[in-house]
Design a protein around this nucleic acid. Structure first.
Lengths: 153, 153
DNA sequence: TGACTCATGTCAGTAGTCTGACATACGGTG
DNA sequence: CACCGTATGTCAGACTACTGACATGAGTCA
């Protein structure tokens, strides 16, 4: 079965393992959010707004790792549901600062608790030092990927 | 814009950082695969087949972290393009063992080299020990998420 | 002032993935 | 043998997120 050919060794490839971990986390979050009638992006948007009130559509999109077009569709839906609110006119520029409503805050509370349990379960076998180490490693990876690769066609 | 906001809980949440890292890697891979006319799942499928020839549709789906329905659509497309080949009838059960064609192998070579560069760039600032540590941490997380939470619903 | 650049919000069309459903094949157990 | 549970391949419809496009507002610079 295992032929060390060219390409990437799947069992040791950090790229593959990163995707595997993210996929597992995604599934676990979906499993707890779906019964609440929420998608992951839906939850992410609410969580972002709770921690950073007044974020614009584009800023929310970047924070939730989707395009601003996708976030815009979601925001319109959340607005109709009365979970968030945006001013009719932009106070400055074109950006519309978004805020959670009380209803949105209540919905987020339930979801946030569920997601926190998922994350705690993921980290159940890691002590504090290991978690710090993992933060450091992930941050280094993110920086390296995001920064200019210097030389590539 | 309202920049300058100090990072809050989000910046220390390992779940969020995991998603951020995976998203950055995803974008970087997309950026190099798109010019080759390939999607990430397309590449993943070919890479899996190179290392584990004879994988079935369902096995490929699990390996690429998509549903078997999605992989089936992709496989039919790859088959039409002459990149993979499947027997008309299953030798045993219903599973159809899939194999790369020479054309598929050639296309994979180019893509694999590009993806390897992306992964190496991601790990540019990590030494061997740190990479091993990261493998260990990710594997622990995957196991914890996947295993039964053994708690209340 | 006017031209240029950049970021934003939004509309429309497209593509990839998902859920639901059904038929088929194997392995157990009565 | 018949029955049941599990796994697979596949078709169809629905959904989510994406790319492309356009207009608006703010900042820069000559």
């Amino acid at each position: 079965m295992s032929q060390g050919e060219p390409g990437i060794e799947l069992d040791t490839s950090l790229g593959y393992m990163l995707k595997a971990a993210a996929s597992a986390l995604h599934s676990a979050m979906e499993a707890v959010l779906s019964p609440l009638g929420m998608t992951i992006t839906h939850y992410s948007c609410l969580e972002l707004l709770a921690q950073r009130p007044g974020l614009s559509n584009s800023e929310l999109a970047r924070g939730a790792f989707v395009t601003r077009q996708s976030m815009n569709v979601l925001l319109q839906s959340l607005e109709r549901q009365g979970l968030v609110i945006r001013p009719a006119r932009a106070p400055v520029g074109r950006a519309l600062p978004t805020e959670l409503t009380d209803l949105g805050r209540r919905q987020l509370e339930v979801a946030s608790a569920a997601v926190r349990r998922v994350e705690q379960n993921m980290l159940a076998d890691l002590d504090t030092d290991e978690q710090d180490q993992m933060r450091r490693l992930l941050r280094t990876c993110i920086t390296s990927i995001t920064e200019p690769p210097a030389s590539t066609t």
